[in-house]
Structures are given as C-alpha cells and as structure tokens.
Amino acid sequence: MSILVYIENVEGELKKSAYETLSYGKALGDMTGEEVTALSIGNVSGEQLEKVGKYGVKKVIEVNTKDLSHFLNQAYASVISEVAKNLHTNTVVLANSFSGKGLAPRVAAKLSAALADGAISLPEISGAAWTIKKAVFSNKAIATEELHEQKKVIAITPNSLEAKVSPVEVTVEKYEPQVLPADLSTIIKDIVRATDKISLPEADIVVSAGRGMKGPENWAMIEELAQVLGAATACSKPVSDAGWRPHEEHVGQTGLAVTPNLYIAIGISGAIQHLAGVSASKTIVVINKDPEAPFFKVADYGIVGDAFEVIPQLIEAIKAYKNN
C-alpha cells in the first residue's frame, strides 16, 4: 500500500502547488505509515526533480514520453491511475489547480476512489474512516466530508496548506506508460503564457482593484504596487466585464477563488459575491474612500482615503521598506 503524489509542472518547472502536495503526501505518509512516491509527467529536468527531496519524499517516478510533453487531462489521468495501480496506491494526492480540477475526477473514476476535492486539511483518520475539510458555498462555510472508500483521491486547494521542508535523498526512476491513442485525441494548437506575470491562483500576495479606479488607464499604479510587492493582480467583476482588465483576473463567486497570505483591495466595495472569492485570504487590507464600504467589515487593516493619493504613497513606503 502506498501514497502517490502527482506533482504538476508548468513549462518544466515545479511550482508551489507541487511542493504543497509533496508536503501533504509526506505528512499523510507519516500518519499512515505508507510509502510516498511522487509522479512527474512531462519534460522536467533532473535538477527540478531533485527538489522533491526537500519536502521529504524519497522517490520520484518520471514519465517523459514525447506524446505527454503537454498537459492532456485524459492522457495524464490514465498515466496517474496506471502508476497508482502498479504501486497498489490507496491514496492519490494532487493539487486542485486548473489542471488538477480536470484530472482529479477522471483519476478518481478510473480508480473507483472517493474524491475529496478542494481539501484544506489533512484527513482525520480513525480506523477505516477518514474525514477531511473543504471550503463550500464559495468560502462561506467549511464542510467536513467522510470518505467511505478505501481508495481516495485528494485534491488540495492551492495556498491553503504550507509546504514544510524536511530534506531527504531522492531517487528518480523512469517509467514508460502505455498511453492509448484515444487518450491523445485532443490537439493543443496554441499555448499563450503571460510569463512575466505571477500566476494569480498561486500568488502569496494579490493586489486587486475595482470600479473605484475609474478606468483602465489608471491601472499603472496598481501594476506598480503589485510589482514592488511581488504580487499578482486581480480585479472585481464589473472591471473585467467592462473590459478594463482580462477575465482571468476576475475574482469572486463567479470568478477565481484565491487564498493568498495578503489580499489588498483597492476601490472595491466588498459585495458579498466579491468576498466569496477572497475571504479565505489570511490577511486583508482595504483601501477605499468610503468609510462605510462593506469591505472594511471583513478587513484586518484599512485605510479610508482616495486611492489616487494613497497608492503612490504606499508604493514609496514599500520601496523604502524593501531597501532597508
């Protein structure tokens, strides 16, 4: 019996979510006494794979066949379940990222496993019964879910569990899976990546702005604030609806749900649908000229003031702090 951790890469690089899943797998292995193995699919360098050891996992299976150099959820799900079967895996751990959401249900169905999607905790184990927590109703509640199957797939919410360092030696083992042509029927024609930007779902810090910014021409200061903080940028729904910002930046109930360590909301009123996607952030800062804005009720820190005056000063203050 074993635990299999699927580690996601973006253009050959392991991302934060991979470290979080490894750390989760390691902690789970410590609880159950099972062996933990990581699985990487795609063209990931040996140097990258060495990093697996940093989070306490001793073995990586590397699948790097030509057909699988790009993420195809059907094919990747087949490989993950094939490896899981070979290793007599009881529990598969992966990230509930954009790709993870496409993979997790397919892997669970292939293994006839119970799926815990969007997990935000390690399981509580008492005998055969496992319970696990996840956010539901767009972060307005937390559900405790009981998993009834011996086989489980756990998809963990990015940013909700810290990656803990506990270094060990790693061995990398290559594996050639049997990929069926039917799994490869999807053709990827084009990939567009905003390489210079920090990815919003993974960001530690998010600088977000709303209709209070008046127009797209005023986003330079938002971008600058994000840049000095090493943050990703986000926006409220009306802002992306109006085409001031791309749809990918829209956070909230009908946009992306994010859980950064720091969420800075500028000129956003704090409508319930907006809060649904951001209220699980660890620290919230609100900058709004209206002291009655509902966002202040869920904020940790607030500045009542005009963004056009406050933001330039804040940029300077952060620069001064970073230079110290």
Binding site: V10, S99, T186, I188, K189, I191, V192, R193, S199
Partner: peptide, 8 residues
Amino acid sequence: IEGGKEVM
C-alpha cells in the same frame, strides 16, 4: 491553464 491559456 496555470499562468495562461491554451487553444485546443
């Protein structure tokens, strides 16, 4: 996709 988009 993470940090971008893909046309399939």
